[in-house]
Design a protein around this nucleic acid. Structure first.
Lengths: 165, 165
DNA sequence: TTTGATTTGACAACGTGTTGTCATTATGTT
DNA sequence: AACATAATGACAACACGTTGTCAAATCAAA
């Protein structure tokens, strides 16, 4: 047994993790409420954001990689958005199957309408918080995220490392 | 249009929120990997934790309220855990239907085994981070969570408040 | 060109959480 | 006691994400 007890940092990060779970749940709820009357959900909104922030049209798989989620989930939602005329597929000169995803004018209006709702919402939510503290929080969260990404990469790349030295 | 642009805090919190989403995803993944060989998942683990931390046996609905999620999801998972002999129901002297949930000896072993895996994992994950920064992060996350809970309560209690002054 | 590995989209099954409805049980009011 | 209200569990439908498999397309190597 290498470590039977948590270090001071380990204890603090454990508490932070539990709060992150709860905050995430609340954010999903609030996000769904915020854009539900636009016919959007948190998941759809996040995907529209990925499309909006990409410099050029990209494939579904590319967006999924960038977002750190699996292709299939993004594919399903983008297919739905396509049926509803919110996004559409452009033929890809470099790949016959991997079509490029772009927002339709209707999709762009929708995305801007969502932002118009998010701005006053987040302004009220964050009112009075110290920008320094927020930056510190973001830094900690980002570092934890990065470490987990690295650890995940290591585990994926060397699954044969089952023996111990 | 009350606020067309985000305040400084609004901008920072928006960035923080996006990172919280990504961190949450990574934590779910890491948590599932950590306890998968015990036959647990992140969701099951979290529910076992709620049971372990309650001072006395409580009903499913009570746990759901405490965790801030809906009864139905907790009910389904606890029913599964019951079938597998990980938790069991005690008759409730004060309520004929709302049985009390307790962990079986097998469930307690499972939960302790999960903690034994989490301790070295979180110690490595948090190594080198400043305890002060972690505390600041937790404080920010907790305040955002509390504000969202309050806002959610307000919206639930006064759904007739559709007009504006 | 041929072969094999990788990428991509399609499809299906499942775990998790949300939403809504229903019957049963407690609780509070009259 | 009788009634209305709330709480609780059961059930079903759906949204979202994960996991696995398959075929088509691309790319790299021989």
């Amino acid at each position: 047994m290498p470590d039977a007890r948590r270090t001071e940092e380990g204890e603090a990060v454990t508490a932070l993790i539990l709060d992150v779970f709860r905050l995430n749940g609340r954010l999903q709820l609030a996000g769904d409420r915020l854009v539900s009357e636009l016919g959007l959900t948190s998941a759809r909104w996040q995907i529209l954001g990925a499309i909006a922030y990409s410099d050029r049209p990209e494939s579904v798989a590319w967006h999924a990689r960038t977002m750190g989620v699996h292709r299939q989930g993004v594919q399903r939602i983008i297919n739905e958005l396509s049926k509803e005329g919110i996004v559409e597929f452009q033929s890809n000169p470099h790949h016959k199957r991997a079509h490029l995803v772009v927002m339709t004018p209707k999709g762009q209006e929708l995305y801007e309408a969502a932002i118009a709702k998010q701005v006053p919402w987040v302004n009220e939510l964050s009112e009075g918080l110290s920008p320094d503290d927020i930056a510190t929080a973001q830094n900690v969260v980002d570092r934890l995220k990065s470490r987990l990404e690295e650890a995940s990469m290591r585990q994926d790349q060397s699954p044969s490392q089952s023996g111990r030295s």
